[in-house]
């Protein structure tokens, strides 16, 4: 079982090095920065922080080059992306109504009889949960159909690029997955089937990287400049660590001092726990259970933030 460490944002307070130290890793390490897109190669600051040999797996540029050489796969991938966007639009449309109902019911608290209302909120959240699961299935089906039909890793261009990734990864004692654009990152991790190359290496992932290695990617922002800010399931993640929704920059993106919102978020994704990944946050999965670093918080169904162990 792969040991996984999830961290908060690294820009101001980098903590990857101390996480590696605690894992007993002193290098070399492989890093995935595909979420940075065209800035993928700009790993200077990260390498400096790590102070050990860093091998960039270059999943973004390698996939771009490989797809340039395989127009059929490129077209298929574009069609897949179109399909995923359409699925997301349909889901978002339905979500606006189901989550809208939850919000409206929650807003009635205090004005209406408690038990009656709470039952209705519970049921409304159940409808959202069903919709989330439906969307997860639909996207997983779309991705599965694509994999089955095109078998990317068996094609020459991707196969060769994946061989280079495997070669670069082989001497490394750990895999690091940085943040950035979560869909771009998740797509590249899938395309190269990275989960099958990791073997027993520990994985340290932060921000979007943390989202991508869990089993469900949830997009979220409580107060966006446009729209109502309903969190959305994007798709399955790599599934390296279970029962946890990673929420990077939670302090900025979520209204954590609003118990109603915290409670709705936590209850919606149960049995998974919603983990706030802010600066200095750390959560470690040892294959059996989660251990939280000091000050790392998860969203409780009671609307408060908890620092004790994540529920199994």
């Amino acid at each position: 079982m792969t040991k996984v460490v999830l961290l908060g944002p690294q820009r101001h307070v980098p903590t990857v090095r101390s996480a590696l130290d605690d894992l007993g890793v002193d290098g070399p390490v492989a890093v995935v920065t595909a979420g940075w897109e065209e800035r993928e190669r700009e790993v200077g600051e990260l390498s400096e922080h790590l102070g050990c040999e860093t091998r960039n797996l270059k999943l973004f540029s390698r996939s771009e080059k490989a797809l340039d050489k395989d127009p059929e796969l490129l077209d298929a991938l574009r069609a897949l992306n179109d399909r995923m966007r359409t699925l997301q639009e349909h889901y978002r449309l339905r979500l606006a109504h189901t989550m809208g109902a939850v919000r409206e019911l929650v807003a009635r608290r205090g004005a209406q009889e408690g038990a009656l209302l709470e039952e209705e909120i519970e049921h409304a959240l159940g409808a959202v949960h069903v919709l989330d699961q439906h969307h997860t299935r639909r996207t997983a089906d779309a991705l599965g159909t694509f994999d089955e039909r095109y078998k990317p890793t068996e094609r020459e261009s991707i196969g060769r690029a994946r061989g280079k990734v495997k070669r670069d990864l082989s001497p490394c004692a750990a895999l690091l997955v940085a943040g950035g654009h979560v869909a771009v990152l998740a797509t590249r991790l899938r395309l190269f089937v990275i989960d099958q190359l990791i073997e027993e290496r520990p994985v340290v992932a932060w921000s979007a990287g943390a989202m991508a290695v869990t089993d469900q990617i949830v997009l979220f922002h409580d107060s966006p400049p446009q729209g109502r800010g309903f969190a959305e399931v994007l798709t399955d993640g790599m599934g390296l660590c279970p029962h946890l929704v990673a929420l990077p920059h939670a302090r900025h993106r979520l209204l954590l001092d609003d118990p109603s919102r915290v409670s709705v978020m936590a209850r919606r994704f149960q049995p998974a726990s919603c983990l706030a990944l802010d600066e200095r946050s750390r959560a470690t999965w040892d294959g059996k259970r989660w251990t939280l670093g000091a000050g790392t918080r998860w969203l409780g169904p009671d609307g408060t933030l908890h620092e004790e162990a994540v529920p199994a």
Binding site: P9, G35, V182, P225
Partner: peptide, 18 residues
């Protein structure tokens, strides 16, 4: 400006977590 610019040019808010 925030309401106008973010409506005309939505940013990658939902997708990017650095």
């Amino acid at each position: 400006l925030r309401a106008g610019l973010s409506w005309l040019f939505p940013g990658p808010l939902w997708m990017v977590y650095e």
